[in-house]
């Protein structure tokens, strides 16, 4: 989004390709799917690795516990569906069969957030980060773009904890320039010293508009939502004294709450604005820009928030 010719790419396609590449190297890698593999670009995976593709149908609870059982036999297991079904429907199964039984199943929830514009509220999952953050040992990741997803996937695949990976539906701007991904480490997208901006997923790329350069933003990509990179975040906030958190998710239970707690606990003083969906369901639209506008997540709302943060004294 930094210029008109920013390239777009599909995070979901990147997922399908990266998982295929991993499966070529790892004969223990399995997919458990709940009748959505074409949407996660796993058609090639299914064709090539027939015996490692377990189709359980539209049955997300069954899928989660089957994935846990497979994982118990030493397999690397990816559970694939949309976020509004997995982890939404099968949360209690994930809690017990996966987390409580210590199985490092990787739960991939696609089509998260308002970005699934025309599908409407039933599919626009805005509570998944909240649901997954609360589970003991569960790690939570949301790549900013297809490029970061590709770096993330092998790292997540081989970590020994259960993990949730949040993907979105549309093609989104390619902005990642980092060469590697480390769990618990965040990334600067831009350096500045007036306002710390935190977020995850493609919504954060809106902050890269040249328009916002004048605000001197310290933009941090928190793609590792849990564990969170406390140190980098607090160091930035110490410098700026102002913080904007933006997420395509409910404010309740989201990254903003995690950051607010972090700041309060640290004893630092900071002006704070949290942009997210405020206690509402989504709705259909032809494109998600209309929804970002409606739910005050668009560049317009961002500009207002940045101005507001600057208009007050930091550290006061």
């Amino acid at each position: 989004m930094s210029s008109k010719d920013t390239k777009l790419a599909s995070m979901r396609r990147a997922f399908g390709e990266a998982l295929f590449a991993l499966a070529l190297k790892n004969p223990n890698l399995y997919v458990v799917d709940a009748d959505l593999y074409p949407s996660l670009y796993l058609t090639d995976f299914k064709a090539r690795f027939r015996s490692r593709f377990i189709q359980v149908g539209v049955a997300e609870n069954n899928a989660a516990a089957i994935a846990a059982g497979l994982s118990a036999t030493g397999k690397t297991v990816f559970l694939t569906s949309f976020a509004c079904f997995s982890p939404a429907i099968n949360w209690a199964t994930i809690r017990q069969s996966i987390c409580y039984n210590h199985h490092p199943v990787k739960i991939v929830g696609s089509h998260a957030g308002l970005m699934s514009a025309d599908l409407g509220a039933s599919h626009q999952m805005l509570e998944d980060v909240a649901l997954m953050r609360t589970l003991p040992n569960m790690e939570v990741f949301a790549p900013i773009d297809a490029s970061e997803l590709k770096m993330m996937l092998p790292v997540i695949a081989y970590s020994q904890t259960p993990a949730y990976l949040r993907l979105v539906r549309p093609d989104t701007p390619l902005v990642n320039s980092a060469r590697s991904f480390t769990i618990g480490k965040s990334r600067f997208l831009k350096r500045g010293d007036k306002i710390t901006v935190l977020g995850y997923g493609p919504i954060l790329t809106q902050l890269l508009l040249p328009d916002f350069d004048k605000f001197s933003l310290d933009i941090i990509n928190c793609s590792s939502i849990k564990p969170l990179d406390d140190k980098t975040i607090l160091t930035s906030i110490k410098k700026t004294g102002r913080c904007l958190v933006i997420e395509d998710h409910q404010q309740n239970g989201g990254l903003g709450e995690a950051v607010a707690k972090l700041i309060l606990t640290s004893g630092q003083k900071c002006k704070f604005i949290h942009l997210g969906v405020n206690n509402a369901f989504g709705q259909s639209a032809h494109n998600y820009f209309d929804l970002y506008h409606h739910y005050a997540l668009s560049p317009l709302a961002i500009r207002e928030s940045l101005k507001k943060l600057l208009s007050t004294h930091a550290h006061s």
């Binding site: 025309d118 599908l119 409407g120 509220a121 039933s122 599919h123 709705q283 259909s284 639209a285 032809h286 209309d290 929804l291 409606h294």
Partner: peptide
């Protein structure tokens, strides 16, 4: 159907 502000959402409501 499935447009912004429509009563006819992408899934029935």
């Amino acid at each position: 159907f499935a447009q912004f502000n429509s009563r006819l959402q992408g899934h029935a409501t």
